[in-house]
Design a protein around this nucleic acid. Structure first.
Lengths: 226, 226
DNA sequence: CCAAAAGTGTTACAAGTACACCCATGA
DNA sequence: TCATGGGTGTACTTGTAACACTTTTGG
């Protein structure tokens, strides 16, 4: 975030911005807020805010996200720090950007907290409105990092409910990577990794029932998925 | 960097630290400075300093490095931002860490600039003294990133002189990766990538002369080396 | 002639990719 | 019975890893 009055002392200010991603309707979405005040009033931006003294960066990111969107306590990873002097017309703000992932957006309907933002909404990454500050670049960098990490970690677990079918897992990969994957090769690879646990139950739907799986470990691990 | 008097206003301060690497005597070395003042006086640390208002992070890193060690204008890449409140006893300093690479340390004999540091020296990454702040963690993270990037970029060019033999290139990879590589496979892979340009000349030495090569492009590129 | 580094190919194995058919279900 | 997604195996290609001998030079 950004958008503070210029500092009284001549030093850069430290802030955090958080790019929260989820998959909705087979499409990668990012959480945006509509700014109520400042030079970018009316524009959309990433949620964020100033880092307090004696507060860690991770804590600041978690706090701002919870306070402003109601999303509690999710996986957060530092992405990059943006510090060009011109990125915020209100003053020199150095912003540490975070990437966060959340399972299907329905579970935590995001809501504005405080009066800083007029609205909070999921927006498809492919069709973003004009964003405030340099947040378009932040989102682009974050989505790229997400795609890269998906290929060599088990991060997918943060985007799915506890139980899911292999079809749902594949849909999720396809949504984020933006390309189709061969079903047979995908199942072979994923099952050979041993990350999943077959639950022995099925999900019934309009067609042939699908076997349900769960991640064996629901914490970040480095592996080789694709 | 760090080691400033506590700020008057209650806000975190922004600094940069730079981990400059080179390969000396077939071993990965990092550039350290000996602190003259502050709670860590006498300890070794990474060079760095405070970011000025209206200065970009990259510019601050380049400026501090040049001012304090005499090393001008080299490849710099942002690594990670460290912001734990306890990392500097003098106050809350958020430090943006950079990785830099330089060809054989002999070319720019580093020298202290100003009175901030008592000495500047290359130290082998495997045998570091106790470092100030959290700089041991910074160096570890930086070396890991360096190893990872070596495998999928042509970054090696920043660590070698313009002309080199395949043996020298291989030595450099072995020094950074910390393991031996098969000479035949290494040459096959590297030559197949087409990154190199055979100069048609040889370097004469105590043994059989070796063909000289140069990088076709001396700018960062993403490829797949190993 | 000796020591030391340069230079070169083949084979075995693992991993990745492409590809087509049958199955189970609800509507 | 049909439309739809679930489920499976094989052949081919590609990349990786292991491995030994000959060449050229300076001393």
């Amino acid at each position: 975030m950004t958008g503070f009055p210029a500092p009284v002392v001549a030093a850069p200010i430290v802030a955090v911005d958080i790019a929260v991603f989820t998959v909705l309707a087979r499409t990668l979405h990012v959480l945006l807020v509509e700014l109520r005040h400042g030079p970018f009033a009316g524009r959309w931006a990433l949620p964020g805010g100033r880092v307090q003294v004696d507060e860690s960066l991770d804590a600041a990111a978690g706090r701002e996200l919870a306070a402003q969107t109601g999303i509690p306590n999710i996986y957060l990873e530092q992405l990059y720090t943006f510090g060009s002097p011109g990125r915020d017309p209100a003053g020199h703000v150095v912003s540490v950007a975070y990437v966060a992932l959340i399972a299907h957006g329905g579970r935590f309907p995001p809501r504005p907290g405080g009066d800083k933002y007029a609205a909070v909404a999921w927006r498809p990454v492919r069709r973003l409105p004009a964003l405030a500050y340099d947040h378009a670049a932040v989102v682009a960098t974050a989505a790229e990092r997400l795609r890269a990490k998906l290929a060599y970690t088990n991060l997918a677990y943060t985007l799915l409910p506890r139980e899911f079918t292999l079809g749902e897992l594949q849909e999720m990969y396809e949504a984020i990577l933006g390309r189709r994957l061969d079903r047979r090769n995908f199942r072979k690879k994923v099952l050979a990794l041993g990350l999943l646990h077959a639950l022995g139950r099925v999900r019934r739907g309009p067609h042939r029932p699908a076997a349900l799986y769960a991640f064996r470990h629901r914490r970040p691990m480095v592996i080789q998925v694709l």
